[in-house]
Design a protein around this nucleic acid. Structure first.
Lengths: 108, 108
DNA sequence: TCATGAAATGAATTATAAGGCATAGAAATT
DNA sequence: AATTTCTATGCCTTATAATTCATTTCATGA
């Protein structure tokens, strides 16, 4: 299953050991919006970009034809990636909130 | 100058030889929104995704650390890329509307 | 210069995201 | 069981994007 945008972002946040609240604080957006987005809800581009920046990710438009190549390039580095400075609070957010199929807020 | 998201998308549309109206029609969004977005205005994620799909591009979140690598991977293929089936109307949309610095609608 | 195609915008209305505050659930720790 | 931490949501207000007309501006080619 190819991960959706919001799923990947969530994974990134968890990879950095950040709670939604912390990510929101750093982005200057609301915790609610992080939740909404990660559940597949709709947000404005400006909001998403703020979040992305806080998570240190860029949103790159990739032609479909090149998607696979880029995917594999990134897949190598994806994973737990507990980063050197994980500001984790509890044992691991990663374990507690696994990426599972969403159902509520929908978005193409 | 690293191209912005909207600039890259615009370039993609032009590369496919599509007018805003045609891109809008294919996306099921309005021509106005294409214009708004391409000028750096704010749109919802759902709107952007529809447009991206019509342009056959994926929106991939790339960790900053990998951005350069991905960039160079894509840069090779970027350019006029008049595609085999360019449904171009006039000589070339590419020439008429060059990617220049924007000023009006702002968006982080 | 006139007709054409494309992009940018105006105005008014509707839909929906954002903001602020608070709380309810869920999961893990002690 | 109580506490802590994180996520999902309810409610209300405000801000802003989407829609739906249309028009204007601009560049091009006939």
């Amino acid at each position: 299953m190819k991960p959706n945008l919001h799923q990947t972002i969530r994974a990134r946040r968890l990879g950095l050991g950040l709670s939604q609240a912390e990510a929101a604080r750093r982005s200057g957006i609301q915790q609610r919006q992080v939740s909404t987005f990660e559940r597949g809800g709709d947000v404005t581009l400006s909001t998403l970009l703020k979040l992305a920046q806080a998570l240190d990710v860029e949103l790159m438009p990739v032609p479909r034809e090149d998607a696979a190549k880029v995917e594999s390039l990134l897949k190598a580095k994806r994973g737990p990636a507990p980063s050197v400075f994980a500001p984790v609070s509890s044992p691991s957010l990663l374990e507690r909130y696994q990426v599972k199929d969403d159902e509520e807020p929908s978005n193409g």
